[in-house]
Amino acid sequence: MLERGFEEAEINQPELAKEAEEHTEQLRKMYKPGTVLEMIRSHNDEELNAFDHQYYIRYRARLGDYPDYIGPFWLRWWYRRNLIIFSNIARLATEDDRILVIYGSGHNYLLKQFIHESGLFEVEHIDKYLE
């Protein structure tokens, strides 16, 4: 569905499609290859995660038009997916647990937001444990 949205955007929303591609290219440059440790650090960088998430809101949310809001419909699915992941984390955790959550970096921003806003957990950044 999202792929179709960007294909249609090239015709119906060309400026949006161009800006989205530029954002994607900038993001690719920010995610530098390296050692596993370097990549873990890079993919958990708060500024980079915010820039990645901004792509969803700035471009994907604006794909399509009435009555076919492709981008918002896709984002509804994306938020639901991340809320389900959060729900599973919260359900599995006990009071004294320490939990390491490993997901793709595109999930970081929302998962951290949901975890923080729930007030159920104290979040520690992965860098604290990487040597």
Rank of each mutant, 00 (worst) to 15 (best):
L2S: 01
E3S: 06
E3Y: 07
R4G: 03
G5L: 00
E7V: 04
E7A: 09
E7H: 03
A9I: 00
A9S: 06
I11N: 05
N12C: 01
Q13T: 00
P14Q: 02
P14K: 01
E15D: 12
E15N: 05
L16W: 03
L16H: 02
L16C: 08
A17V: 02
A17R: 03
K18M: 07
E21S: 08
E21N: 04
T24V: 10
T24G: 04
Q26G: 06
R28I: 11
K29E: 14
K29L: 14
K29T: 07
M30H: 04
M30Q: 07
M30P: 00
Y31A: 03
P33G: 02
T35Y: 01
V36H: 04
E38N: 04
M39P: 00
M39V: 08
I40P: 01
I40A: 00
R41Q: 07
H43K: 10
N44A: 06
D45C: 02
L48A: 09
L48Y: 00
L48E: 00
L48C: 01
A50H: 03
A50R: 10
F51Y: 14
Q54D: 14
Y55S: 10
Y56W: 15
Y56P: 02
Y56L: 14
I57M: 14
R58W: 04
Y59N: 03
Y59E: 08
L63D: 01
D65V: 03
Y66F: 12
D68L: 09
Y69W: 15
Y69K: 03
G71R: 00
P72F: 09
P72V: 04
P72Y: 05
W74S: 01
R76Q: 12
R76D: 14
R76I: 07
W78E: 07
Y79G: 01
Y79N: 06
R80F: 11
R80Q: 11
R81T: 14
L83I: 05
I84V: 15
I84H: 06
F86I: 04
N88W: 02
N88H: 10
I89H: 02
A90C: 13
R91N: 15
L92K: 13
L92E: 14
A93V: 07
A93Q: 09
A93I: 04
E95P: 02
E95T: 10
D96P: 02
R98C: 13
I99R: 05
I99W: 06
L100W: 15
Y103M: 10
Y103G: 06
S105D: 15
S105I: 11
G106Y: 05
H107V: 14
H107D: 12
H107K: 11
N108A: 08
Y109I: 10
Y109D: 15
Q113Y: 13
H116A: 13
E117V: 06
E117I: 10
S118R: 07
G119K: 07
L120M: 12
L120Q: 12
F121M: 09
V123G: 08
V123F: 12
H125V: 10
H125P: 12
I126D: 07
K128C: 12
L130W: 06
L130H: 08
